[in-house]
Design a binder for these strands. Structure first.
Length: 319
DNA sequence: AGGTCGGCCTGGCAGC
DNA sequence: TGCTGCCAGGCCGACC
């Protein structure tokens, strides 16, 4: 499933190939992709425009176009963005830039299945969006207020930026009774973490996924920030995780799935001790953890109000 | 307003 | 062998 490391891997591959090129034509084959706007409006909005930058926010890939417009793409579950080089449609040109590859032969890739949109570039190349389960999204936003509002409503802190500090994490988790696992998956608080990296981050932080988010103290938040950053960077280092459908922009699988510390490792021995990795379901998501070494925090004991009768459900703001 | 759950979607697979 | 039904999960909207 594309999460931050997968989207960022694609972004890094697309950036040098797309910036400066012009989108000559766009063809959206699945009207679900651009909802609520019709395909035609997105096709028209991007056609003829030059790519100025390729950025990322959370799990969104942002293709910034001249004329203050951004094509925002979300891969959701099974979306892939494949870049076909100019010429015969092979990606040979791209692959030759791979370090330590040595001379390798690449067959022209077969026509991908489940194509939902195609964007033809002025150098003859093509950006192809495929999506088996059709959850993906491609919309056009005006840079400025519209774009800002769109993401402000949906996305919180960027976990690989300076914004994510233990103090900030504590603030975000304050009074939250939801499990840490759910907390990490809430994009409006921290953007970009999905089911895989939430499990990996919690294992690294030695925190039980069912601990109430608001029960963290500074030392836990400290560990969790390290866990989040460590898990995401490991994902980046391995080109993302390809559990089933994910491919990078060159059509290649990532290798992070071979490096998982807990995710999908039910029944295996924990790498940190004698514990056995368990699978539970949290918020409808498979959740893997080690019950022996991941600390289950308790809800913070109510501060014994020295006042006479503490209101039974007081939730005074920062009194 | 926070928390929880169903719906969206399709290929793969377990079970009969 | 072939059919049925369940499962995966990011995000949204509905509901408490």
């Amino acid at each position: 499933m594309p999460e931050l490391p997968e989207v960022e891997t694609v972004r890094r591959q697309l950036e040098p190939e797309l910036v400066g090129k012009r989108i000559e034509s766009a063809s959206v084959l699945d009207e679900r992709l651009t909802r609520p706007e019709p395909p035609l409006s997105v096709e028209r909005a991007v056609t003829g425009r030059r790519v100025e930058a390729v950025n990322r926010r959370g799990k969104y890939l942002l293709i910034e176009l001249e004329g203050e417009r951004t094509l925002a793409i979300h891969l959701r579950m099974t979306g892939n963005l494949l870049l076909r080089g100019a010429g015969d449609g092979s990606v040979t040109d791209l692959m030759e830039t791979e370090p330590l590859g040595g001379p390798r032969l690449y067959e022209p890739p077969p026509e991908p299945s489940h194509v939902r949109a195609r964007f033809a570039l002025d150098d003859g190349g093509e950006l192809i969006f495929t999506d088996l389960r059709r959850f993906g999204q491609a919309i056009v936003l005006d840079q400025g207020d519209q774009l800002e509002d769109y993401f402000a409503a949906r996305l919180g802190v960027e976990p690989l930026s300076d914004e994510l500090t233990p103090q900030r994490l504590l603030e975000l988790a304050k009074d939250r009774k939801a499990p840490l696992k759910s907390f990490l998956l809430t994009q409006s608080r921290i953007a970009g973490i999905g089911n895989i990296y939430a499990d990996e981050a919690l294992w690294r932080a030695r925190l039980h996924p069912l601990s109430p988010a608001g029960s963290m103290k500074l030392e836990h938040a400290d560990r969790l920030v390290d866990g989040i950053v460590g898990a995401l960077e490991a994902g980046l280092d391995h080109g993302g995780a390809s559990i089933d459908d994910y491919l990078d922009a060159r059509g290649e699988r990532g290798s992070m799935q071979d490096e998982f510390l807990v995710h999908t490792r039910e029944g295996e021995r924990c790498r940190r001790g004698d514990g056995e990795i368990m699978r539970i379901v949290v918020d409808g998501r498979s959740t893997y953890f080690c019950p022996a070494c991941q600390e289950r925090l308790r809800r913070r004991p109510r501060r014994r109000a020295k006042a006479k009768t503490a209101p039974s459900r007081s939730r005074e703001a920062k009194g």
